[in-house]
Design a protein around this nucleic acid. Structure first.
Lengths: 117, 117
DNA sequence: CTGCACGCTTCCCCAGGGGTAACCACCCAC
DNA sequence: GTGGGTGGTTACCCCTGGGGAAGCGTGCAG
């Protein structure tokens, strides 16, 4: 398994990780799969503005990097479920501090002064 | 202070943070400034392949996002020093788990099969 | 006078990641 | 037969981020 597309040319771990999560929708996919497995259409509906082509491409890259697992059910209407691999779950855990930072420093921006509590 | 360029349209904290660190060289800049303040030329020499134009642009964005501090010394040969703001330092701390993940899962790749344990 | 070093800025150009839309194969409901 | 929903693929286009190279203003070295 080769993780990342720039194999071998990384300066440091963060650099390498950025290559894996660098797609426009990847962290949102991880965020969605963090909750529960998703079907393709579910993901598409939850990511505002993503197209099938791009979603499929990002999922394929994440799959190639061993982050998501793709399970095909040979059923009457074809069903495919995407879930996090163990490696994907550890990645999501590693992203949590970053998410907290973003929430505190980017999302919660219009803070005039001290929070009340 | 408005952090990020997509202000207000973020899905979650990770998404927002990715907007701040999304440039090609930004995490490497953070990584370098993590150690000590750097002059422009120092940074350029430490980042293999970055051009002045791009380095200046990334630094400006990081400055606009309150991540790096730019100190100009009105000296004989103009001198400029870049350092992390407190917010930049917390960002770097939030990136550490991601760096560890990348080091373990991307850099240390030649793992043949199952881990022994 | 020329050149270099500093820390940029400006202009131009290119690749590629992402967006748009159509199509596919299957089955069911209408 | 038509349309909708499943999960895609393919072809094409476009925009933006990034790369290349040169200029700028100052002062010193040669």
């Amino acid at each position: 398994m080769t993780v990342g597309r720039r194999a071998g040319s990384y300066v440091c771990g963060v650099d390498a990780a950025m290559d894996v999560i660098g797609g426009k929708w990847k962290v949102l996919i991880l965020w969605a799969l963090h909750m529960r497995p998703h079907r393709f259409g579910e993901l598409r509906r939850e990511l505002p503005g993503v197209t099938e082509k791009v979603l499929a491409a990002q999922l394929r890259e994440l799959e190639a990097d061993g982050i998501v697992h793709r399970e095909v059910y040979e059923e009457v209407p074809p069903r495919v479920e995407y879930s996090l691999t163990p490696r994907g779950e550890t990645l999501n855990e590693a992203l949590e501090p970053l998410g907290a930072w973003g929430k505190a420093n980017v999302l919660a921006e219009p803070v005039p002064a001290e929070p009340i509590g």
